[in-house]
Design a protein around this nucleic acid. Structure first.
Length: 575
RNA sequence: GCACCGAUGGUCUAGUGGCUAGGACCUGAGCCUUCCAAGCUCAUGGCCCGGGUUCAAAUCCCGGUCGGUGCACCA
């Protein structure tokens, strides 16, 4: 990985940000090559998961007011309390130490001072070495970046730890745009922030990173996806059961097989696993070093009922590239509770249903004078009673209890009636299936999987075998020599290719071999050289990065040929 | 946050309590050159930061920052 790391820095893929000021751990700048590669990767994601799936893309703020994270559960889950053992130096979750060794079940909600007290009072010891923890300070690690919105103390806000909440909080509007029809998906590509205690491994664990997330809203009783569209995709599955038995055996199943055999529980999850696999292959992840690993029960996030991670292997480590989670109705239900808006969809029945419903319409001109300020509560109690127990209204009087006090109302004053009501549907909370991708991790893995060293006549050639579609530069243009008009022709050609929308690098420095090597290092799939023959017959040589083969192509055809190669419509071997 | 290790041009490195900190690659200019890192000339550019010891610190000591690895954490 060190060669790749060096290449990344030297050639401008990514490097640590703000190095002039010493740098801060966990923040990276994508250089010219990396920014282009990342943009292309994002573009293919958008093509697959937004455009081709017919989903909608949004772009929500990164700064988010506190109540959103109260609702989502992130705020509570964030205050990790750590206590360090003076003896062995191990850090432990202080709330877990307390909960595991006392009757206290909600230590997580205690302030740190109180947790310190509890530890001292119960003589709790270090789970690793048994040394007393009394007197050790309990420190809080909040993994969200906090900020304040507006002047002064303002109102507290946080940089979002995931883009997903944007899709959830805007659900009431998004469902309108989807014309209240399930299923529909809302996607977002953007940055998220996690104040990691210890960022590691370059882009793999950064504090600010780009995510591409799709929240796909489904009717839990509705129709599943059209699996015939992904029928031939084989999924390398590593289920929880196999991990627990320490097996390394992967199951290779199509989505339908995985569902029929009960390996994957949800049709939409199986569908998106298949779409994901094909996408990863498209951007250059090596399928020999790729798998879907199911989360173990204890590993699941607070919002998930099931989750499969797409993982890529780099230097012996498996890196999580994507999580496909069943978030059920967790998020929308939470926001329904906390927010003012409606996070449900009205689902129409095939046929309207006629149901009998017991209702009351109390005579308030009687209840008011009779019960004064309690009249409203009595009305509510009557309504509830009517729904619960119609027979209570059989007699001449009805008695309800409000705050422990009994109120008796003549039945004729309650307006009790049983009416037939037509219901055309009901409100349901959609379930969410979430494919969430780490873009930086994908970029990193693509670089690692495509980095290659070639032996050419004793010389080592560094080459990035990136798929043409995501390569930062599509074509390099060189004059064989910058004289005799070759340079002018080449510069014209480069301008024409750029005008056609291709990403072009022009290079006239050094001998021709050196220029090919430069482009090999940054993954440019094709290079064009203008030579003396070009001046006579208007052809150029077109060179393929991976084979170093060359063919002559008419200058007039060049734009079409290169674009077709990039888009996978033609093969170099067939030219 | 802890432990261990490390930090020298853009990159990779040599090196030492004391001359102008050396090399390779890269990059730029020029010469040469008719398709895969050729050669020659020249040029740009460096001892992570702060404090201490010392006549003298890039070198030794302390602290910090950053990085690597392990522990812990990873919603």
């Amino acid at each position: 990985m060190s060669e790749l790391d060096e290449l990344a820095r030297r050639r401008g893929f990514f490097f640590q940000a703000n190095e002039a000021y010493g740098g801060v751990s966990g923040f990276y700048t994508y250089g010219p090559e990396g920014a282009a590669l990342k943009r292309n990767v994002e573009e293919t994601w958008r093509d697959r998961f937004v455009t081709r799936e017919g989903n909608m893309e949004i772009d929500a703020p990164t700064v988010t007011p506190e109540p959103v994270f109260v609702a989502s559960g992130h705020l509570d889950g964030f205050d990790d309390m750590l206590v360090e053992c003076a003896e062995c130096g191990e850090s432990h979750r202080a709330d877990h130490v307390v909960e595991d060794n006392t009757d206290i079940a909600d230590a997580e909600t205690y302030p740190t001072e109180k947790v310190e007290e509890v530890i001292a009072k119960h003589d709790l010891v270090c789970p690793s070495c048994g040394a007393p923890l009394a007197g050790q300070s309990v420190d809080e690690f909040n993994l969200m970046f906090e900020t304040s919105i507006g002047p002064g103390s303002g109102q507290p806000g946080y940089l979002r730890p995931e883009t997903a909440q944007g899709m959830f909080t805007e659900f009431p509007r998004l469902k309108e745009y989807a014309r209240n029809q399930l299923p529909f998906g809302a996607a977002q590509i953007g940055t998220g922030y996690r104040n990691e205690i210890s960022p590691r491994k370059a882009l793999v664990r950064a504090r600010e990173f780009t995510m591409a997330e799709l929240e796909f809203f489904v009717d839990p009783e509705g129709n599943g996806p059209d699996l015939s569209r992904v029928a031939d995709v084989e999924l390398p599955l590593y289920p929880a059961g196999a991990q627990e038995s320490e097996g390394e055996e992967y199951l290779h199943l199509t989505p339908r097989e995985a569902l029929e055999e009960g390996v994957v529980g949800d049709e939409w999850v199986a569908y998106f696993l298949a779409r994901s696999k094909v996408w990863f292959e498209r951007v250059g992840v090596d399928m020999e070093r790729f798998r879907f690993r199911q989360h173990l029960p204890g590993e699941l996030a607070h919002y998930a009922s099931d989750c499969w991670d797409a993982e890529g292997e780099v230097d012996g480590d498996w890196i999580e590239l994507e999580g496909v989670a069943s978030r059920t109705d967790y998020d929308l239900s939470k926001h329904s509770e906390h927010a003012d808006d409606t996070f449900t969809i009205f689902k129409q029945y095939d046929e309207p249903k006629t149901v009998e419903r017991a209702t009351v319409d109390p005579d308030m001109s009687y209840l008011g004078p009779e019960f004064g300020g309690d009249a409203g509560a009595v009305e509510d109690a009557l309504e509830a009673l009517a729904e619960r127990d119609r027979s209570a209204f059989d007699g001449d009087e009805v008695t309800v209890e409000v705050d422990g006090e009994a109120y008796t109302v003549p039945t004729e004053k309650t307006g009790f009636a049983v009416e037939e009501v037509t219901e055309s549907g009901r409100h349901i909370v959609p379930h969410v299936v979430e494919p969430a991708f780490g873009v930086g991790r994908a970029v990193y893995t693509v670089l690692a999987h495509n980095y290659d060293e070639d032996e050419v006549e004793g010389e080592t050639r560094d080459v990035l075998r990136l798929p043409a579609e995501v390569s930062p530069t599509t074509v390099g243009v060189f004059p064989l020599m910058d004289k005799d008009g070759l340079g002018d022709t080449a510069r014209d050609l480069a301008a024409d290719l750029r005008e056609a929308g291709l990403s072009v690098t022009y290079d006239d420095s050094g001998n021709i071999g050196r220029r090919y090597r430069r482009q090999d290092e940054v993954g440019t799939p094709y290079c064009v050289t203008v030579d003396y023959e070009s001046l006579e017959d208007d052809t150029v040589t077109l060179r393929d990065r991976d084979t170093t083969d060359q063919v002559r192509v008419d200058i007039d055809d060049l734009v079409d040929v290169v674009a077709a190669l990039r888009d996978g419509e033609r093969d170099f071997a067939d030219l």
